[in-house]
Write a protein that binds this DNA or RNA. Sequence first.
DNA 1: CGGGCTATTGACGCCTGTCAACTACGGTGG
DNA 2: CCACCGTAGTTGACAGGCGTCAATAGCCCG
Lengths: 239, 239
Amino acid sequence: MPVVIKQNNSDALATRCTSCKVRPYSFCRCLKEKELKNFAGISSEKKFSDKQNIFLQSDEGKRLYNITEGNVKIYQLLQDGRIQIIGFLYPGDFFGSYKKGKYNYSAQAIGDVMTCEFNGDTLNDHMDENPALSRELLNMTTNELILAQDRIKVLGKLTATERMASFICNISKQRARINWQDNPISLPMSRQDIADYLGLTIATVSREVTNLKTSSVIKMISTSQIYINDKTKLTELCN
Amino acid sequence: MPVVIKQNNSDALATRCTSCKVRPYSFCRCLKEKELKNFAGISSEKKFSDKQNIFLQSDEGKRLYNITEGNVKIYQLLQDGRIQIIGFLYPGDFFGSYKKGKYNYSAQAIGDVMTCEFNGDTLNDHMDENPALSRELLNMTTNELILAQDRIKVLGKLTATERMASFICNISKQRARINWQDNPISLPMSRQDIADYLGLTIATVSREVTNLKTSSVIKMISTSQIYINDKTKLTELCN
DNA sequence: CGGGCTATTGACGCCTGTCAACTACGGTGG
DNA sequence: CCACCGTAGTTGACAGGCGTCAATAGCCCG
């Protein structure tokens, strides 16, 4: 079970949102300082540990989560057990649903994860009162849609080499966006996760990493630490 | 060049939105009757003919289009000419962008198309005045995102047979959603378009259609008219 | 009836999947 | 501190699904 970290007592509420490190990157950045304490009151911090499911696609529920620390994968399962990872999510990203019905994917923690959990109904009420909130959610959902459309192109047309190259490129860009080190980069997810994300197999992913090493486009600091030697060449490989 | 059909004179404005057949399926359904005339004033009807580009990915612009008649494909081009069709759009769907910068895809008419064109700035202003509008756009964008995520699964994990089956299923469902005949169904797009949509080649698409015919899951009325004989079997093939 | 485009079908090859063996690494216990 | 073990990643051999290319068939329209 997820762990509720702090009770919503007044002290905690006063500082939780105002001191939140990911606020500049999450949808709550649209709120004014004075609204934050109130907003903290409608959310609760929840912690998840490695490989713990945050929710399943089959769950009935309307909860929205904001990642404050760690990484999350969202995925869909096919009947026969095949898995497709829809996306990797990072601090500042949100996921879940504020509508009734089943979720469109399952969500699982990669390593330790800290989240802000919102009830969909409560969030909807807030949107009614504060139009800026729905505008910001519209903005961020539109950005998500753009990312999803780019992924459609990757999975529909790119070769294994191109998929791997664009994966590394995109991780690096994402790190830069939230002001983290963008080279070298650490990969929090396993090779199997990368394969399930790129529509490949673990063997192919491994081979492509080896190829990138051999052509010295990248250098492996460790299994999960990549240093990009030649950004130009990497970008070319992305097509 | 696109053809502007009606000048925004007062008579046309009074009836254009109120008599619009796709309004129950498009984002403007959130507007009240009395707001419609005003809303008609910020849009203009534009017509496009077969294979005409509505905009290119490289265009600078912020225009949003609502389809009132016909079908549109949105697609991305790779450097070397490979094409990935991101989606087929139908009456009631919207596309384009209300933010500054380049579009995320190109849009092209499939057959004759009638649209409502909005200027992004004007639409943004309207969202400021009318929060219901941004809520509705949020709803519809969220639905788009769900469709895109399902497509990620299709392109990442499904076999050619499964892709073809789910394509036919989805078209049928889409027709039902806007209260059109859902069996038999007409396919407005070419085999090449279907291939570029499903991440396959025209040869494979053709072979899969033949397989579905041979196993009498479907029957071809003409090249572009499919009758679904066995919906259960078709659904099973989708996984 | 003929020309041109689109769709179908066949032959063949390649990219990536499958399966399995091997290697690297990290944690645990003696 | 090191031997042991389990998990994760790499690599090789082989196979198969889908792409490529080309020939044929079907269809629309003049």
